[in-house]
């Protein structure tokens, strides 16, 4: 938390995330909202919570695909900008698949997705040594219904800030 220096309140108020995705595996979170600038809260543009909720920590994929949609590229561009502005952070990109497909194939497919996101961030200037990847295949769905509505959210690559290069 010592890394999360205070930021100007200007702008923060307008950037409060509408999205409230609480991924317990990610850092940050904290007591968001209210509009008061609390370091580490989603209103702090340098906080992991801000990265997760406002920049957007995940991109979604079509069935059995690992190519990045224009929308995914926009989100990743935002991630790259954030990572370049916050050079103390490193990230682990988690690739996931929906439950359609065998366990083994989905592990490999999740790896493709995580790598596609990583390559994009590198192409936008983020140093490769700040970005690791892992695939969970279909082992860690966030939505558990068995329809496309859930599947589409499970086919994802999530950029998880794992801490700081400074420790």
């Amino acid at each position: 938390m010592k890394l999360l220096s205070k930021v100007a309140a200007i702008g923060a108020l307008t950037l409060i995330a509408a999205c409230s995705n609480n991924d317990p595996s990610a850092l940050g979170g904290g007591a968001g909202g209210g509009g008061a600038l609390v370091p580490g809260s989603p209103s702090d543009p340098r906080s992991p919570a801000y990265f997760q909720q406002t920049v957007g920590d995940r991109v979604l994929f079509a069935v059995d695909q690992s190519t990045l949609s224009p929308q995914a590229q926009t989100i990743l561009q935002g991630q790259a900008d954030w990572l370049l502005a916050n050079p103390d952070f490193v990230a682990n990109i988690e690739g996931h698949a929906d439950e359609q497909g065998t366990r083994e194939y989905n592990l490999a497919l999740g790896a493709r997705r995580a790598n596609a996101a990583r390559e994009y961030l590198i192409s936008r200037g983020v140093a490769g040594n700040r970005l690791t990847t892992v695939s969970y295949g279909k082992e860690r769905p966030i939505e558990i219904c068995s329809t496309e509505e859930c599947y589409s959210k499970n086919r994802r690559a999530v950029t998880v800030l794992t801490g700081s290069t400074l420790g």
Binding site: A111, N115, R118
Partner: peptide, 9 residues
């Protein structure tokens, strides 16, 4: 076994 490097298995 399968080994994945750089997204390729």
């Amino acid at each position: 076994y399968s080994l994945t490097q750089g997204g390729n298995t």
